[in-house]
């Protein structure tokens, strides 16, 4: 578990610099140096007067079990949202009216977000979960060798997650 800074809340009181035993809070980019941060220390979290520092978990509890029928109905809805996204994109690309394209683009974005949310609740909320690992393995087995498939990215993800 390491600390992180929400830069939108930080009011530069700099108490974190004062309390941090390792200097992890003193960086050029405004974010905490995770590699220097002591797991679970939380001195800066408690000291920050603007509540701009919080802890990020390294280990999450196992996701709650998703029943197959719940997962299926969410995947069905996501499929419909993705179809609508593709339709809206097609309508936009076939029109030369900037106002109609703006409408279609908004509808496409909206549907993409709804599809993502369905997957999130269908058991894909944590990238470190077994569900994501098995999805990545399936994709690698299926698409390996196909032109432009980023196989190295998938391997790296399996290594890092």
């Amino acid at each position: 578990m390491h600390a992180a800074r929400n830069i939108a809340l930080c009011t530069k009181d700099c108490v974190c610099l004062f309390v941090c035993p390792t200097g992890a809070t003193d960086t050029e980019n405004g974010q905490i140096d995770f590699s220097k941060c002591l797991s679970g220390c939380r001195l800066c979290v408690d000291a920050c007067p603007s509540h701009a520092i919080y802890l990020v978990s390294s280990n999450y509890p196992k996701p709650q079990k998703k029943e197959t029928e719940v997962k299926d109905s969410l995947f069905d809805l996501a499929a419909s949202k993705v179809k609508q996204e593709s339709m809206a994109k097609a309508l936009a690309s076939e029109s030369d009216d900037p106002v109609f394209r703006q409408l279609c683009k908004s509808v496409a974005m909206s549907n993409h977000i709804m599809a993502e949310d369905c997957y999130r609740e269908a058991g894909y909320i944590l990238p470190q979960s077994d569900a994501v690992r098995s999805l990545l393995k399936d994709l690698l087995a299926k698409e390996e060798g196909k032109a432009d498939f980023p196989a190295d990215a998938v391997r790296k993800l399996l290594e890092k997650l």
Binding site: V82, H112, A115, E116, L135, K160
Partner: peptide, 27 residues
């Protein structure tokens, strides 16, 4: 489908960003 996997992957990309795992998010 590819379209479905695109939404699945951007969902996981966002989830990584929320955990400040920028390298995984980029992958």
């Amino acid at each position: 489908t590819h379209g479905e996997l695109a939404a699945m992957c951007t969902n996981l990309q966002k989830a990584c960003s929320k955990q400040l795992r920028s390298e995984e998010a980029q992958l």
